[in-house]
Design a binder for these strands. Structure first.
Lengths: 340, 340
DNA sequence: CTGTTAGCGCCTTCAA
DNA sequence: TTGAAGGCGCTAACAG
């Protein structure tokens, strides 16, 4: 479906008896145009209802004022709030945002890369899929100097800037919180160990145990794909073992919630029996009973920071394109949280 | 930041000793090109690593293969799943998606319209902000024949196609469910009455009461802006009234959850005292204790349908541009749901 | 079946 | 401070 013909800079030029280039320059606030002319051009533009044609401009300047975003899934609160942060800043700076979801699958992530590349985005912000092990598809960008910034789930082997959350600290705080409640045998449902976030959460947890001279029991550390199904399996294993732990630190929401659901379904009263700390960003945390104590991270802030970094690179304001920004986490203890 | 020069169709043309148009046609699978030539062109394109420049194509054809989406907020599960549906289908059909959030504010919605218009989107899918009363900004699209489809929260005064959920049925099912549990005095926390969805939910509720000869008490019907704060106020009013209702039908998640939180904070045991039916799409509904019985609607389906409709209009496959599609709702009764 | 030609609307040298 | 001219890469007549 074609649009009807629109006002172009030449219409303005004709109306004002100047050349197209003058109009173009005036509209772009070029310093070599007199204020009088600029004003006249702008007025006429408004009068005629001129709408700049970004397409033509893009073709000419070969930059699209668009940034691409690749995320696992938009329906996870952490990511949708990251998007909100990205969008807000990007739009303020005159950029559009194209969002692609990898559904946490490597192959789809590669598709996203292709899509964004074909859209000629000026830069890309990405958080990698849970099962991505090979990062070659990202070379589509790096090989052509298209700026790339990772956030949250980052890729260390590509030399890019990144914005992460202090997962190590998060793991540490979570474990120490449970220790402070008197727990001695703290289980940890961890995630895939090729992902920075789960490695760091685990390491933080380990450090807290060591600091407090608590015996590290390998059996209490489970590496889980963090699906809901596996969460239930973990819950079963932990809650129904002969020697159950007295606390659980779950590496993400899904696993934490699985524990709660499993307990509820099987009549295990969590508040009395267990302490749980989830690693959560979902807004529903606070609705839960028993409430989780959670480690909160702001998707919005992460998104904003990543965008800031990316736009800096795009506009070449900074020389360092391998910056790593670490954002803080916060431990939120719910009122009705478990007290052992 | 400029991209380095790329392979164009002319490079392919030169390598093959044919004209640019032949290459263009071959790449676009034009029927007037021999299979032999097509194959040769495609091979050469691959060999040279050709990437079509959508910008140039867009400029020439004045269509961007991009659709715009306006939603209140991406972080609400219903909308993020709608986005997923939209994106999936759009991408399959070769369209990009630009998402704008109105934050439920009329002024920002108008900004979104401008942004999308400036991006020269081929069509728009929108769900209106909660406080939008004036729809003039949408005329930016309708005046220029840019296809527009509303979903969920629709605008009746603009003559466009729309995809909605069967809110009337939802309200009816919710109320009837509570009646079937033996409840007689069913309160309803409703939403702004200029929005189709809340009007219809209320009407459905009323119909159920009438059908079962239940007295309609005006005092039990509250029109709320559905913020969390107001939800708490409604909860207080209902739960602590001298003559509290024996059931509540909340028109959305926020209000339903507010009831639960308020009850929890104030030591009111909901399972024994109240039956609640929420109108919910959030994935966390099922984690709640006491669980809500909810009316489920699929954001994904709504998004998909809206996209289907929009793409049909864009590609002119259908003459009727004022279609209304109503998608079904489902009542989900949780196992641990309230039994009065 | 293929080539030639002429732009889409804008920006950017270069010249005045 | 302004104008003229050319071209970004592709497509769509119009010719063959």
């Amino acid at each position: 479906m074609k649009k009807e013909s629109n006002i172009t800079i030449h219409d303005i030029a004709k109306a004002l008896n100047v050349s197209g280039s003058t109009v173009s320059r005036a509209l772009n606030d070029n310093s070599r145009i007199s204020d009088r002319t600029k004003k006249a051009v702008r007025n006429m533009a408004k009068k005629l209802g001129y709408q700049p044609n970004a397409l033509a401009s893009n073709l000419r300047t070969s930059c699209t004022n668009t940034i691409g975003v690749i995320i696992p899934r938009i329906s996870r609160y952490f990511f949708s709030s990251a998007i909100t942060g990205i969008e807000e800043l990007a739009r303020k700076k005159g950029y559009n945002v194209i969002i692609c979801q990898s559904n946490d699958q490597e192959a789809r992530e590669a598709d996203c890369v292709q899509t964004l590349f074909a859209s000629r985005v000026d830069g890309v912000i990405s958080s990698i899929a849970i099962n991505t092990k090979n990062y070659d598809h990202y070379k589509t960008f790096t090989n052509r100097n298209i700026p790339l910034v990772f956030f949250d789930r980052v890729c260390e082997e590509l030399e890019t800037s990144q914005v992460v959350v202090d997962d190590f600290k998060g793991g540490f705080l979570a474990a120490e919180h449970l220790i402070s409640k008197g727990c001695k045998r703290i289980a940890h449902i961890s995630g895939p160990q090729h992902l920075n976030i789960y490695i760091n959460r685990l390491q933080g947890y380990l450090k807290a145990l060591r600091k407090h001279d608590i015996n590290i029991e390998e059996d209490l550390i489970i590496e889980s794909p963090l699906t809901r199904e596996d969460g239930m399996a973990c819950a079963k294993k932990l809650l129904e073992s002969a020697n159950p732990p007295d606390a659980i630190f779950a590496a993400n929401d899904t696993s934490a919630l699985s524990i709660i659901i499993y307990a509820k379904e099987n009549g295990i009263r969590i508040p009395e029996d267990l302490a749980i700390v989830g690693f959560s960003n979902e807004p529903f945390s606070e609705y839960l009973n028993p409430s989780l104590t959670t480690i909160e991270q702001s998707g919005f802030d992460v998104g904003t920071k990543a965008t800031e970094l990316l736009l800096d690179i795009i506009t070449n304001k900074t020389g360092n394109h391998q910056e790593t920004i670490v954002l803080p986490v916060k431990l939120i203890e719910r009122e009705s949280s478990n007290k052992k």
